[in-house]
Design a protein around this nucleic acid. Sequence first.
DNA 1: GCAAAAGTGTTAAACCTACACCCATGT
DNA 2: ACATGGGTGTAGGTTTAACACTTTTGC
Lengths: 224, 224
Amino acid sequence: MADAQSIKAFRFAVVAIDAVCFCIIDGQLNVLLGKVNVKPFYKDRWGLIGGIVLPEEDADQAVERHLHDKAGLEGVYKEQLYTFSTIKRDPRNRVISVAYLCLTPEPLGDRAGAVETEWRPVRSISDLAYDHDEILKAAVERLQSRIGYTNIAQYLLPKEFTLTDLQKTYEIILDRTLDKRNFRKKVSDAQLVRATQKKVRAGASRPALLYRFVSKQPAVIEIL
Amino acid sequence: MADAQSIKAFRFAVVAIDAVCFCIIDGQLNVLLGKVNVKPFYKDRWGLIGGIVLPEEDADQAVERHLHDKAGLEGVYKEQLYTFSTIKRDPRNRVISVAYLCLTPEPLGDRAGAVETEWRPVRSISDLAYDHDEILKAAVERLQSRIGYTNIAQYLLPKEFTLTDLQKTYEIILDRTLDKRNFRKKVSDAQLVRATQKKVRAGASRPALLYRFVSKQPAVIEIL
DNA sequence: GCAAAAGTGTTAAACCTACACCCATGT
DNA sequence: ACATGGGTGTAGGTTTAACACTTTTGC
């Protein structure tokens, strides 16, 4: 480590965060985007929600603040994804960005924030600003991987949900269909969820039992 | 993102890297440590090898440079582990550190560098400087996890090795014994390695075939 | 009574685990 | 000939994947 006197020379970079915030809307995996207007470089492009880390906060707190201020989102699940540090990733300044994978059950607050935001289906997205296509790809892969051995699907669902809802969540994220009986067996064996007493009627069909996740904390459990 | 004029106020942090560099020595998982002397805070403590990221390099390159300059190590395998950003993790300055998991087959160069370094068995280590105990713990867990579904064990072994060498590597990292026949079956099914024509004699016993990894690139393959 | 989604078991194949002996060499 | 580590197969249990019908409700 360098001397205190010379340390200023090493403060050449801005540290930022970028949040890849997912939500399932109308049976599709959506991601929250914000308008990017950076004069000579990006005109009216879309990009991830992100921003600078401040002296009085760590990266996790910066994610919460930016999601709140820019998109009106609060209390989302978040986990660190990867840190992107290539030199020219921001054409104006050296910006090192800690990317986060975020999940929310409801696309709330997308107009309460300070930035023009929009939820967009992941599979329709390309040409994001900066290196955000790459960050998004990494986030999708991470989500697909982690849903198989953790209980993070809960952060995409309401507190109570049917097993069909849960299965659809898995199918949307993994982009393939799953067998209903095998899925229920695995979920049951893993003790991922427990049934409530409540049932929900949806149109002209047999009511479904509502379930809740057993653990509210992120946990590692073999599921699929 | 902020205006170019105000950007300097956001350059309050130093971005650094910390390398958790593993090597198997005498049947034990060892990690490379360096002496830390930071006047009022750390007297003669051990810590991970690390240092500042410079304007003309990204984090990966910074890892290579610091391992080379401080410990004389070159060409090690590295993968990003996690970014540590808590405010007081360095008592002197705000330092945000991108931690890396590094692997090397040989404990070379530990005296060619600019810092006093030492390879130390992981299970004997505690009380490292900064938050390096936490970083080391995360690295061990990541290594244990990744060795089960990738081919990264190759970066801890010489180019040619016996299946017994390979199995010992797994056992040391996982800290448990494995069944010889089952291990060989899995390694063979996964097409992780291929036999050479060479055999190696080691004392008074049957010579063992030498193997090489099939792919030199990091790859995801189910193994254990 | 019919349309719509919920819920439930079985079977065959694949996989995993535990386990013991013969082989090739050096001394 | 014996000590040393190298190399190999099988059987039982477990897990996975594929598969179809009955139940409960609204209309």
